[in-house]
């Protein structure tokens, strides 16, 4: 058995849901006593291990905790209890082009985004050509990204994320933005990423896509793992109820 790339054990996440929406000192003062804080248990103890080179899909209904799980893996949230461990460099694609600044040019944003994802300036510089080429944006790369269409932004974001030499990719339903040709290109890249030993964890509602790339599926239901196994079996169970 190959080594573990993602280790999750006893993972719980709880959010405080406020109905008064304390966002100012006034509401804090007025609602001091009556402040209702609802504890929302989103993940109720997850345990799983993703081995290197595996491509795992997470399926489940809205509110099952899929995005929360990905955010925890991307270190955006801190777990309430339990641990998350990712070995190697992680590229989270929770939102393509998160951190792009509209007034900066495509090229400046590439450098900046690359560094957010953990590259050094030198490494980011060395990759700009490849990134621009993959995103097919050679003509627009010196214009500010506020002039880009959403498809162009998505292409640029995806292109940066896959060029940071990540060992683990975390993808949250973001591939549905480019046109058909670009989508195919993305899938092709994901397959070659898998073939070269990269680990992928992704969330999708598109069962066709899940069947196509995943070799393991986890079904999340109410913050717990309902089923974990072969794609066909899990998808069949998930779709029938």
């Amino acid at each position: 058995m190959s080594e573990a790339a993602i280790l999750v054990s006893g993972l719980q996440k709880e959010f405080l849901l406020s109905h008064s929406g304390v966002g100012s000192l006034k509401t804090l003062a007025l609602w001091w006593k009556r402040r209702q804080l609802e504890h929302l248990q989103v993940l109720r103890g997850l345990d799983f291990v993703v081995t290197q080179g595996q491509c795992m899909a997470v399926v489940g209904r809205n509110g099952a905790g899929k995005s929360t799980l990905l955010s925890l893996l991307a270190r955006v949230y801190k777990p309430t209890s339990g641990t998350v461990e990712v070995k190697g460099r992680l590229a989270p694609l929770l939102e393509l082009g998160a951190g792009f600044h509209p007034d900066l040019t495509g090229l400046e944003n590439i450098l900046f985004n690359g560094m957010i994802l953990g590259l050094t300036r030198k490494e980011a510089m060395a990759r700009t050509d490849a990134i621009v080429e993959f995103a097919e944006l050679a003509h627009h790369i010196d214009s500010p990204v506020r002039t880009y269409s959403s498809g162009m932004l998505a292409r640029l974001g995806f292109s940066v994320a896959i060029h940071v030499d990540a060992e683990v990719l975390i993808v949250d339903e973001v591939l549905a933005v480019g046109d058909f040709a670009f989508e195919q290109k993305c899938y092709k890249h994901i397959e070659s990423f898998k073939a070269s030993g990269g680990t992928i964890l992704f969330v999708s509602h598109n069962m066709e896509a899940v069947r196509r790339v995943a070799d393991r599926v986890v079904w999340l239901k109410d913050g717990q793992i309902e089923m974990d196994g072969e794609p066909d079996a899990v998808i069949r169970a998930y779709e029938s109820g």
Partner: peptide, 8 residues
């Protein structure tokens, strides 16, 4: 919006 999506 950015720090909800990426870590640094």
């Amino acid at each position: 919006p950015v720090i909800k999506k990426v870590y640094f």
